[in-house]
Every structure is written in structure tokens, then in C-alpha cells.
């Protein structure tokens, strides 16, 4: 789960860093236009008071010191997370058919969820179905929550849906698990 979050975090950080780089470039361009001395004077004037106040607070201890320490620690953790996210290898999220030689036949998780829900919704008494697929170390899992109308035997429904899912679960080596749910919550069939 953490690995899944680190990748996007690294990509967002790269975007933010690019924005900062653009800002630096703009500053340099302005400096070149008005002259380096003038630009430096302007920057100095704008920053001097704020920096002075901050340094005074830091030297005197108290809340400013604690805040700075927290920000520094947070920055270190964020940098580590970004580095891990950027350097970690991205796994292919497709579910592949085994024994296809050099070539691959793969299905994206979204498509697999959609076909599983579609197959489950074809079972007698099912009013809606929601599917989830998860790659796990012991083999990928397919879990389907099938909402059904009253008067339907859950065990029979589970068998029916499981057999319907076989055309997806068997070729892709998914361990299918069906959870019948009586009415109530769940996506309704159109």
C-alpha cells in the first residue's frame, strides 16, 4: 500500500520541483533584464526583515525552534519517501495469461473487475455486483460481492456466480471468492 502511494508522490514532487525550477528561471531572467545588482537589492530588501525576525526567534529558543525542527524532520522523511518512490521499480499491473511464450496476453485490473462484475450480474437473483482483484503473494485474488433479491439461496447463488466467473478466474489463475449479500447496499443492476 505504501509502495503504491510513493510512486504518485514522487511524480507530484517532480511536478512541484519543475514549477520551482521555472520560478528560479524567471528570477534569473528578471535579474538579467533589470541588472544583477538591482535584482539582488530588491530581493535583499524583501527578505531581510523576514529572515531577521526568523533568526531572532530561532536564537531565542521557544516555539520557532520546535517548529523548525519539525519542518526539518518532515522534509527529511518526505525526501526519503520521494527517493524511494522514484527509484522503486514499477510493476506491471496487468494480469497475464501464463504459458504464452515470448508474447503476453494481459488484462488490466479495471477490465478484469468489469468483466467479473458483468459475469456475476448475469446470475439468477443477482441485483448488483462489485468485483475486486488483488495481486497477492499466494496468487491473485478475485473477490465479488453479489447483492441478491429476497428468496435466493446464498449457497446456490455463490456456486452459480463462481461457475460463471470460471471463464475469467481459471485462465488468469485467480482465486475467486464470492460473497452473497441480501439486498441493501451494493450497486444495483441497470
Amino acid at each position: 500500500m505504501i509502495a503504491l502511494l510513493l510512486g504518485p508522490l514522487a511524480r507530484v514532487s517532480a511536478f512541484v520541483l519543475l514549477g520551482l525550477l521555472a520560478l528560479v528561471g524567471l528570477t534569473v531572467a528578471v535579474g538579467a533584464a533589470v541588472g544583477p545588482a538591482t535584482a539582488a537589492d530588491l530581493a535583499q530588501l524583501a527578505a531581510r526583515d523576514a529572515v531577521d525576525r526568523f533568526l531572532d526567534g530561532l536564537a531565542g529558543g521557544g516555539p520557532a525552534q520546535q517548529t523548525t525542527a519539525l519542518i526539518a524532520a518532515g522534509t527529511v522523511v518526505l525526501c526519503l519517501a520521494v527517493a524511494i518512490g522514484a527509484l522503486s521499480r514499477r510493476r506491471s499491473r496487468s494480469f497475464l495469461l501464463p504459458d504464452e511464450g515470448d508474447a503476453t496476453l494481459g488484462v488490466r485490473p479495471r477490465a478484469l473487475r468489469a468483466i467479473a462484475a458483468h459475469l456475476a450480474e448475469g446470475a439468477r437473483g443477482v441485483t448488483g455486483a462489485r468485483a475486486r482483484v488483488r495481486p497477492r503473494r499466494r496468487g491473485p485474488h478475485l473477490r465479488v460481492d453479489a447483492t441478491h433479491s429476497a428468496g435466493v439461496e446464498p449457497a446456490a447463488l455463490r456456486d452459480d456466480v463462481t461457475s460463471r466467473l470460471a471463464s475469467v478466474s481459471e485462465p488468469f489463475g485467480l482465486r475467486a471468492r464470492v460473497r452473497p449479500r441480501a439486498g441493501g447496499r451494493g450497486r444495483r443492476a441497470a
Binding site: 496487468s94 515470448d102 508474447a103 503476453t104 496476453l105 494481459g106 488484462v107 488490466r108 479495471r110 477490465a111 478484469l112 468489469a114 468483466i115 458483468h118 441497470a190
Partner: peptide
């Protein structure tokens, strides 16, 4: 031609 890969990226029902 070398290897040929096929990926199902999405699903669309008739409706």
C-alpha cells in the same frame, strides 16, 4: 515482427 502482446485495457458493455 518480433513478439506480439495483447492487453485488454478496458471493457465496454453494449449498453
Amino acid at each position: 515482427l518480433g513478439a506480439v502482446h495483447v492487453t485488454v485495457a478496458g471493457l465496454l458493455a453494449d449498453e
